[in-house]
Each structure stands twice: as C-alpha cells, then as structure tokens.
C-alpha cells in the first residue's frame, strides 16, 4: 500500500495557470458588455418613495427617464423643484411635449420612467402628465423602491 501511495505522489502537482488569464478575460468581457455606465448626471435630488405593488421593467432600451425633484445646489443645499430629461433641466414645461414626441417617434413602445422625489408636490407631476398625454407617451412608470415587508 505504502509503495502505491509513493508512486502517486510522484505525479506533477502544480495546476496549470496558463489559462487563468483567459478565464478572467472571459469574465471581464461579460461584465464589460453588461455594464451601463451612468451617462447622465442628475441635477435634481430624487429620493424615491417605497411601494409594494411593483412591476419590473425588463427592457431597458424602451425606457426614458424623467426626473422631478428639488434642484441640487452647491454645499448640499436644495433649491426649487426642477424637471430633468436626459442630461438637461427643462426650463419650460411645454417643451416636454416636443422632446417626448420625438422620442416616441424613434421608439413607439416608449416607457417613461418618472423618478419623482417623495417631497415634491403633485401639481408639477400633473403638469408633466398632461404634457405626456399631449405627446402621446401614455406608458409611464412611477419609479419606486421595494418596500421590505416582513
């Protein structure tokens, strides 16, 4: 028996590491492909409310975001409520209509994800909703975080 074991121990013990970089590169490429770097800086504060009745949006390419919340000012201060689409604040609410209409022409199944700060007032959201109706972008999603219910 002892001799048998000795024979086995003569076998080469090191694991070939030559393919290690290849494995790592495979993983790397996977994450590179799936990564979406945040392309916009949000200029308004949006602390999303929590809810239970959630639906998921699986198709990210259908989604366009619209932020409503108090504007971020230097020194962590917050200003009056602003509306942001893509990477710019919308000064005149009536321009929401034309922006959204143009997006709808490009993507007929457009979903507008409304990321609204919890402290914002409904008035501005109502105005935005009316603009969305004018544009014909009727599918909206009130973005909320998952409320953990035990």
């Amino acid at each position: 028996m002892a001799g048998h074991f000795k024979q086995k121990s003569k076998a080469k013990q090191d694991i070939p590491t030559a393919s290690l970089p290849d494995i790592i590169f495979m993983l790397l490429i996977f994450f590179m492909v799936t990564t979406v770097l945040r392309e916009t800086t949000v200029q308004v504060r949006t602390i999303l409310p929590k809810a239970e009745a959630l639906t998921k949006i699986d198709q990210k390419r259908l989604v366009t975001y619209l932020w409503i919340g108090p504007k971020k000012l230097p020194d962590n201060a917050i200003g009056e409520t602003g509306v942001q689409i893509d990477d710019a604040l919308v000064e005149d609410l009536s321009s929401v209509r034309s922006i959204m209409y143009r997006k709808l022409v490009e993507q007929p199944k457009l979903i507008v994800s409304l990321r609204v700060d919890g402290t914002s007032e409904m008035g501005i959201l109502m105005d935005v909703q009316q603009e969305l109706r004018e544009a014909g972008t009727l599918r909206v999603n009130f973005s909320t975080k998952r409320d953990v219910v035990l």
Binding site: L27, L28, F31, M32, A51, L54, I57, L138
Partner: peptide, 23 residues
C-alpha cells in the same frame, strides 16, 4: 474585472406601471 464588477448595475428598474388616458 473588479472595476467592471463594481460599476455594473444588474438590478432592474422597479416601479408602479400605469397607462395614462389618451388625450
């Protein structure tokens, strides 16, 4: 790899879906 691991967001957007009434 670690850089992309950290920057990747796999979590899907959640929210309350609604369809606005047409104009």
């Amino acid at each position: 790899l670690i850089f992309f691991l950290v920057t990747t967001t796999i979590d899907v957007d959640t929210g309350i879906g609604m369809v606005l009434p047409p104009k």
